[in-house]
Structures are given as C-alpha cells and as structure tokens.
C-alpha cells in the first residue's frame, strides 16, 4: 500500500500551515506503519488538543480526538480494555507535558504498551504562539514579550526517569531516522516515547527569527548529533538524536492479564 492509502484523503490538503513540521511527522509515522505492515483496523490513534492533535483526523485508523492533555488517559482506557490494539498517541509539547504532564509520567511509570509521540515545536501554535514547557529560556512568545525565564523539560530525561522503556529523539529534518525510530517504538512492548523536533515557522520561527521552515529544519541538522557520536560527546550543547533507552520491563496489560488469571482461579474455587 502507498502511504496515501493510510490517509483520509478527502480532508486534504490538511489544515496545518505551509512548512509545518507536523505534516512531516505524519508522513514519517505513516511510513513506519506501512513498513511494519500493520492492519489499519488494529490501530487506534488518540490525540489531545492543539495543532498536533488534528493528526488523528487525517489517518484512516480508529481515531479518538480527545481533550487537551488527556490523550494518554483515554489511550490507557482503550489499551487496557482491548490490549490487542496498537495505540499511537501523538501529542504537542504543551499537550503532552504541561496540561498532560501527569498523564505522561504515569503512563510511563505503568509501562503500558502505548507509543507516545511528542511533536515538539516549543510553542502553543493553535492559540497563536505562547511559550510552552519545552520552549526553554530566552525565547520570544506572545506571552513572553521580554523572553522566557521558564526552564524547559528535557523530554528524554523526563520519560526515562518516569519509567518509559523506549525513549528516542529525532527531528523532521531526519525523516528517515524518524520512520526507523517510530517503527522500533511501535514494535517495542511497553511505553515508548519518541520526541520529534518539529518546526513551527508561523509562530516560533517568526518570533525568534529562525527563518522559514527549511531554514528551521536545517538548524535541526546543526544543533543535533547522534547518540554515541564524537560530536555529541565534545559538544554538550547539542541535542542527542537516536535511541536513549531500550529496556525490558513487565508491561502493564500483560501483568494485569496475570491478575485476571489469578482472580479467576480464586473465584472458581
């Protein structure tokens, strides 16, 4: 099947701005699904609110467009009740880590088999360019006219500390790498997090004079380096790219399956 076969093509062209990285994330994700040969009927995509969240309307899966920050909580109900489904949960940075921060760390702690994708454009795009918990210091935003003083979360460190068993980062510039990481994340049994730096030329780029979409993407090439590379070792200011964590821990639904087995045996006595 072609990538377009996974789309609800009647809604195209999509609603994202020209050059928005979120379209590339969709592109990379669909290629991952296609290359894995997953059955569309077996996939549920759950999203929250924001530019990122509109992704669920475009994919020809079971799609659940929920509330701001709550995508993982809804997804937990879907997955727990029907573990054979594949859960894809793309979220924006504010969605996943401000209003949805609690759900994010607890989904990671449970190690429930869900793939969380943080589409990190470091800004609230839908509401017009306010800073997010991933903006970091010294950023201009409509709610930070004098630049931000808020420190940012490091998604990789946060997810790792919270117990995610697969943690990776890439960018929209590295689209091939994104597909490869997403494939691994989807196949991983447990809570997987893939942070994808995704440009917002309309708000973040314009406010912070980062140029057009292509220039912002090129910047991703310059400010990142592969995990384990000499470049990253020598320059701690660079963002690491690739797989940070890949570990095995008991998965939540599997463990609950054991509880059910135990309880049913007890009830039969």
């Amino acid at each position: 099947m072609a990538v377009q076969d996974y789309l609800r093509q009647r809604f195209f062209p999509h609603m994202w701005c020209p050059g928005c990285g979120h379209g590339t994330v969709l592109n990379s994700l669909l290629r991952a699904v296609e290359e894995l040969g997953l059955d569309k009927n077996n996939i549920v995509m759950t999203s929250g609110i924001g530019c990122s969240a509109r992704i669920s309307g475009y994919v020809d899966f079971h799609s659940l467009h929920t509330l701001h920050g709550r995508a993982l909580a809804f997804a937990t109900g879907v997955k727990m009740s029907k573990p054979e489904l594949t859960l894809l949960v793309p979220m924006g940075d504010g969605d996943a880590l401000a209003i949805g921060g609690n759900h994010f760390i607890h989904a990671a702690r449970r190690n429930i088999d869900i793939t969380a994708i943080v589409m990190n454009n470091r800004i609230y795009g839908m509401t017009g360019g306010q800073f997010s918990p991933l903006s970091g210091c010294g950023i201009k935003a409509t709610t930070a006219p004098y630049t931000t003083i808020d420190n940012n979360f490091d998604v990789v460190e946060l997810a790792t500390a919270a117990g995610a068993t697969f943690v990776a980062r890439t960018t929209t510039y590295h689209a091939k790498e994104a597909t490869s990481l997403l494939k691994k994340a989807i196949l991983h049994k447990g809570f997987s997090v893939v942070e994808i730096l995704s440009q917002c030329p309309t708000h973040f780029g314009r406010k912070n004079k980062e140029g057009d979409a292509a220039q912002m993407m090129e910047n991703y090439k310059n400010i990142t380096a592969p995990v384990g590379s000499k470049a990253l070792e020598e320059n701690p200011a660079l963002w690491g790219r690739g797989i940070f964590v890949e570990r095995e821990r008991p998965e939540y639904c599997t463990e609950y399956g054991k509880i059910v087995e135990l309880a049913m045996k007890g009830a039969a006595k």
């Binding site: 809804f74 109900g77 879907v78 009740s81 609690n102």
Partner: peptide, 29 residues
C-alpha cells in the same frame, strides 16, 4: 472485576479516570 475477566485500573487522578472509562467504552465495554 478480574474474577469475571473484567478490568480495574487505579488512575493517576480523577480526570484520567473519567477519560479512561470513555476510552474503554469505545472498545465495547
């Protein structure tokens, strides 16, 4: 619930609990 093959989950907060039951209802529960 597990005695009858059902599912119980203690969520991280009240909001998540409400969201989770909606998700589970959509799978036919």
């Amino acid at each position: 619930l597990p005695e009858i093959g059902g599912k119980f989950i203690q969520m991280e907060d009240e909001i998540a609990s409400m969201c989770a039951i909606i998700g589970a209802s959509l799978t036919g529960h």
